[in-house]
Amino acid sequence: MKSKDLTKKIITFSGQTAGRDKFYRTCQYGSKLLWWCLEQGSGDPDLIRKVKALEKTIGTSRKLFRFGKSFDAITAAMKTIHLPDVFLSFTITLAKLNQSVYLLIDHTLWAHRIGLVEVDSKRLSNLSTRFWLATLILNLSRDLYELSNVLNDAMALYAKRVGGGGIGNHYTSNGEDGRDSQHLSTNNNSSQLDFVILCLQQNMPVVLDLVKNTADIFLPLSSLGYLPIPVGVQGLCGLISSLVGLSTVWESTLKIQP
């Protein structure tokens, strides 16, 4: 990439609210992982205190940056409810509605943290985390459903090719929800594993979304006490999901649709 194109890309990225949020989230969980590593290595207590303060400050700032996004989620849900695929319509729409409630509670917690309102922050935080968990479960269900459809179609086509069905030199997968066609180039010497890998490569948005949601789901599970996950692992999971999120904002073709 030329320096001029890279500069333009950076300006475009930084000009997006989603881009800035993903960047700050990466810093937040990176800080969490850093101070945990410093504690394990008997690092400077003053430095650890500063990194912890940085993580907390970024977390509070992100709540402000997300202000109003709950209404965006509701608007998105009104669109996805009309998807022709019933399962996708159900999971995506319900995920958006859960996300809107989670963000709305998050807005209230931010107002409480800066002293605008007085609420039971522990109870609301627990409720918000439950809605976040429900959102992630629905998103994972959608990812697995889409991935299984892609793999099933690919394997059926591979079996047909091996059986001499004469499918030509490419594979096209058309989603029932009207998204653009995706093409998988094949050749007569490719093995079944090669074909699966090629299939996954041509459906990276689904794969990346699955990785992001899988990494994220450990965070609410830990916060709610369902899984005893160390702070360092939480930081690592959050960092992984944040980096994936960064990549989908940086390169829009990697973002799952709709």
Rank of each mutant, 00 (worst) to 15 (best):
S148N: 14
S121T: 15
Y158L: 00
W36R: 02
T80M: 04
D85G: 07
T80N: 08
I11T: 09
L88S: 05
D21L: 04
S252K: 10
C37H: 11
Q99V: 04
L116E: 14
L151R: 01
S190I: 13
K122R: 13
T12H: 08
L54F: 11
Q40L: 12
G59H: 01
D85H: 07
E146K: 01
P220C: 10
W132Y: 11
A76E: 08
L151T: 04
K50S: 14
Q234Y: 08
Y29L: 05
R179I: 09
I167V: 14
W110A: 02
D72I: 08
W35Q: 00
G238E: 06
K160F: 03
L198K: 10
D209P: 02
D85N: 15
L138A: 07
N126C: 12
T93R: 08
Q234L: 15
L109K: 09
R20N: 06
L33F: 11
K160P: 01
S125C: 10
T108Q: 15
F71P: 02
H107M: 14
R25F: 06
Q201P: 03
R179V: 08
L136Q: 05
T129C: 13
K122Q: 10
W250I: 06
H183L: 11
D143S: 11
E251K: 13
Q201K: 13
Y226R: 11
P258M: 07
L138E: 02
E39Y: 03
H107S: 14
L6A: 15
A159G: 09
G225H: 11
T7H: 08
G232N: 03
L133A: 06
E55L: 05
S89R: 03
L38I: 05
C27I: 08
V86Y: 07
Q257G: 11
S190A: 12
H112Q: 12
D106W: 01
L83A: 04
L227C: 15
G175N: 11
S3N: 09
F87L: 15
K255T: 08
L104N: 06
N169P: 08
L157C: 09
T214F: 13
Q16G: 03
L227S: 13
P205V: 02
L184H: 02
